[in-house]
Amino acid sequence: MTTVKEEQTTTSVALGDLIREVEGIHADGYRLVQIGCTNIGEAYEINYSFDKGYRFRNLRLTVEPEIEVPSITGIYWGAFVYENELHDLFGIPVTGINIDFKGTFFKTAEKFPLSITRKGGDRCQNV
């Protein structure tokens, strides 16, 4: 019988509250595990995952295509790898990344291969 000592919780977060929520999580002493994105047809689900002592907390942000998402690199410096990935694979505009590769982090044959609206586009979305 496997018993994995791990809790996972997922809470939804509104775009306007994202930075405040992440700041709170940072203050609680969580570390950033990952930021991942899912294309759910007409919108993106972005999961911001954090962990502290094997307690896994997940903030879920649902955004429509073309909506700008603020960067959390001001709070978690290392988030730039994930945020550049959000931009390069999904075409989500992320504003204010500390190290912004402007669409050159993943160079793919087809630009924004997992995007809803930008698939095959050729322009960098970060301004």
């Binding site: 595990v33 990952q34 991942g36 994105c37 899912t38 294309n39 759910i40 999961n47 410096w77 290392g78 730039f80 790898v81 994930y82």
Partner: peptide, 14 residues
């Protein structure tokens, strides 16, 4: 629908 794989090296790049 989706498999998202976050590997340790990506986390160690920063």
């Amino acid at each position: 629908v989706r498999a998202r794989i976050r590997t340790p090296t990506l986390a160690n790049v920063p």
